[in-house]
Write a protein that binds this DNA or RNA. Structure first.
Lengths: 349, 349
DNA sequence: GATCCGCTTTGGATCGTTCTAAATACGTTA
DNA sequence: TAACGTATTTAGAACGATCCAAAGCGGATC
C-alpha cells in the first residue's frame, strides 16, 4: 500500500488549450508532431507549452491507448557485478527504444521474487525480463505474471515442462565455454584437470561441467570423481575449498573454474598454500568480470559480455512485444575464450 | 517514442462488477479492503476476482487519485559495485514501502542524464533519487525535474548556489573518513604519508584530501606536495601511477588512497616493484567493497555501507514526499574505519 | 447558388479507476 | 404512520490523455 500525497496540481493539455484558444485535441496533435496541424497554430501551441512548463503525462496516454512504455526487470542479485552490468545493458537498450525500466531486486529469494513480480505486474509493464532467483518455480512465476505479458527468462533454466514453451529464454552457451577452456588446458599439455566450484544443482553449473566432461572425453582423458569439487560461487568459499583439490594423488595440475569469483578465490587459496597460479598450476574462469584482467596473474577466462547480453535481452523482449503471436524461442548466446596468464603449461618438475 | 501494441484486453473492475452483480464502486471498495462492505458481498466479489484472474491497474488508480507509486532512481554508473549496491538498497526499501523503482543509468554522461531525467519525469514519479554524472549542472537538472518533484542528490555535490536549497543531499562523511585513516597510520608510527588517487576536481576527492590534510596538520606533520598524486579512480590507472610515489626522497612509507579500487591498484603496483604492501608499505582504502576483505593482504579501509545508504536515501525521499513543505536538508552519513592487514607499522630498515 | 474538395480543427466519448453525494433497505422510535 | 438512524450500495462525474466522426472554411467546379 503506497502511502502518497496528492501533488500540487500539474499543467495539463486543457490548460494549454485554454491558454492559446484551441481545443485539447489540437494540442494533443501538436505534442505528437502530427502533420495535420497548421504551422502557425503549431507555433502558438508550442510557445504556450514552453510558457506554462508543460510535462507530458505518459500514464494518462497509456491508459487511453491501452499501451505501456515500461518493461520490468527482475534481478536475482543486483550486487553481483555480472547482473549489474546486465541491468545496465538492458536499461541502455530500453531507454534507446523509448521504454523505461521498472527495477526489482530479489536477492535470490524465491518468496521475494513472487512479491516483486505481483507488484510490478500491477504497473502494467509491456514485458518482463527475469533473471530467476535460486529455487524459482516456473508455475508460480507464471501465475504471478499471467499469460498476457511477454516473459524473457535470462541465465537460468526455469522448468517449462509443457509441450508449448511458455516463455522466451536467453542463456549463455555454458557447455561450449567450459569445453573451450578445457580444450585450451589440454592443448597446453595438461592431463589431470579438475572442475572447481559451483553448486551441482544449478543449471549453469551442470552445463559447464558437461562441456568440461565432453572435452576430457574427446581427448581420451579420465575424470577422477574427486576432481569435481563443489563450492558456493564466492571468492571466500572457493579459497576455503582449495585444499580439496589436493586430496587425491596424483593431484590435478589445472582447474576449470565455475566462474571468475571462484577462480580468483582458488588463486588466493593456491597462493596461501605456497603454489603459484599461472606458474605451477593453471586456472581458468568464466564471465570475464572487470577484475579478471587485472588480477595477478591475469585470469584466462570465458567472456560472456553481460552488458551485451542485457542489450540483447532488451531487444528480444521488444521484438516479442511487437509480434506477440510468434512462439517463444530459446536463445543461446555465444561465448569467447580470453587467454591470459593464469593458464600455463604443466610445470616440469 | 515507444513503439508498442495494444494488449489483448484485460479484466477490469467492470467485468468483475457485472460478473457478480454489484456496482464498480463496490468492487473498488473490496479491493481496497474498506470496512463498509458487507461480509457476504465481499466474499462473493473476492471469489469473482479470483475466478476471472483480475489484476489491479495501478496506473488508472494513480491517474484518478493524482498520486504516484514510483520513484525514479538515476545512477551515474550501475556497473560500479558501489552504486549497484546502493541501487539494491534503494529498491529494497522502496519495495517495502509499496513503491516501485524506475531505473535510469547515465554512464557518467551529463547529456544522457538530461535525456533520462526528461523521460523518467514523464512517468510521473513521486520523487527522484539522483547520483549525478560527472560534470552535471544543477540548473539543467532542475529544469528537467521541475519544482514539484522532490529531489535527493546522492554522493556528489551539485552546485546549489541559491539562498534556498532546492534539493535534499545525502553524502558520505568523506573528511572524517580520510581523517580516521590518516590518524590510524600516524598512530602506527608513519610520518611520511601520501594521498593517492582520485581527481582533484571531484567533490569527494577534495573532501577526502581535506580530512587527510587536517589529520596531518593536527599531528604537526608536513605534506610534501609531491605526495598528492592524482589518478583515475580505477585499479589499472592506479597501478600505473605507483611510480609517482617514489619520485621524492625521502619517499612516503604509507598512503591513504582515494578509494578501494585505487588502493588495490596501488598494492598491485607495489608488488610488481618488489615492495610488499602490508609489510614494508602501508595502504588504506575507502568504500569497503566486497573485495577489500579478501585481497592479499586484506585491505584496511573506510566502510560506507552502500546498501545501507541506499535504504537511507529511499527513506529520506519517502519522508520528503509525505511532507513536501519541509525545507531540504543536507545529510552526512557516518563512516567507519575497518582495520585489516594492509596497514602495517613503518618497516624498520 | 449548390456541390465538392483538401486542409484544419473540434466536441465528446473513452481508457480503468476513485470519489462524492445520494439512494436503498430495514429496523426503531415517537 | 411518519420520522429517524445505521449499515450498505450505487450512479455518475472526475483524472489527463487519445480517438473518431463530423464540422468549418475557403476556393474551385458545375
Amino acid at each position: 500500500m503506497p502511502k502518497d500525497t496528492p501533488s500540487p496540481r500539474k499543467v495539463t493539455l486543457a490548460d494549454i488549450a485554454q491558454g492559446c484558444d484551441v481545443s485539447r485535441a489540437t494540442v494533443s496533435l501538436v505534442l505528437r508532431g502530427s502533420p495535420l496541424v497548421n504551422k502557425v497554430t503549431r507555433a502558438r501551441v508550442e510557445a504556450e507549452l514552453k510558457r506554462q512548463g508543460y510535462v507530458y503525462n505518459r500514464a494518462a496516454a497509456n491508459l487511453r491507448r491501452r499501451t505501456s512504455s515500461s518493461i520490468a526487470l527482475v534481478i536475482n542479485d543486483l550486487g553481483n557485478p555480472f547482473f549489474a552490468e546486465f541491468a545496465a545493458g538492458v536499461d541502455e537498450a530500453l531507454g534507446a527504444a523509448g521504454f523505461v525500466t521498472l527495477l526489482g531486486n530479489t536477492g535470490e529469494s524465491a518468496e521475494r521474487q513472487q512479491a516483486v513480480l505481483t507488484s510490478l505486474i500491477e504497473h502494467g509493464p509491456a514485458g518482463i525480463i527475469l533473471s530467476p532467483a535460486e529455487g524459482s518455480d516456473g508455475d508460480r512465476v507464471l501465475s504471478a505474471v499471467g499469460l498476457h505479458t511477454p516473459l524473457l527468462v535470462f541465465n537460468r533454466e526455469l522448468d517449462d515442462a509443457d509441450g508449448q514453451p511458455r516463455w522466451e529464454t536467453l542463456e549463455m552457451d555454458n557447455p561450449t565455454g567450459a569445453r573451450l577452456a578445457t580444450e585450451h588446458l589440454i592443448a597446453l599439455g595438461h592431463r589431470r584437470i579438475a572442475f572447481f566450484g559451483g553448486h551441482r544443482d544449478s543449471s549453469s553449473c551442470r552445463q559447464r561441467r558437461q562441456g568440461y566432461a565432453e572435452a576430457m572425453q574427446a581427448a581420451g582423458l579420465a575424470v577422477d570423481p574427486g576432481w569435481l569439487i563443489e563450492s558456493a560461487p564466492t571468492r571466500l568459499e572457493a579459497a576455503r575449498q582449495t585444499g580439496a583439490m589436493f586430496n587425491r594423488d596424483p593431484a590435478p595440475t589445472a582447474a576449470v573454474c565455475y566462474n571468475d569469483a571462484v577462480a580468483l578465490g582458488l588463486m588466493l587459496g593456491l597462493t596461501s598454500r605456497g603454489r603459484r597460479p599461472g606458474e605451477d598450476f593453471a586456472v581458468t574462469g568464466f564471465d570475464d568480470i572487470a577484475e579478471a584482467s587485472v588480477s595477478v596473474p591475469p585470469l584466462t577466462t570465458v567472456a560472456v559480455d553481460p552488458r551485451g547480453r542485457g542489450r540483447q535481452a532488451a531487444g528480444l523482449i521488444l521484438e516479442r512485444i511487437h509480434r506477440a503471436e510468434a512462439k517463444p524461442e530459446r536463445i543461446i548466446a555465444p561465448v569467447q575464450l580470453v587467454v591470459r596468464e593464469s593458464s600455463c603449461p604443466p610445470s616440469t618438475h
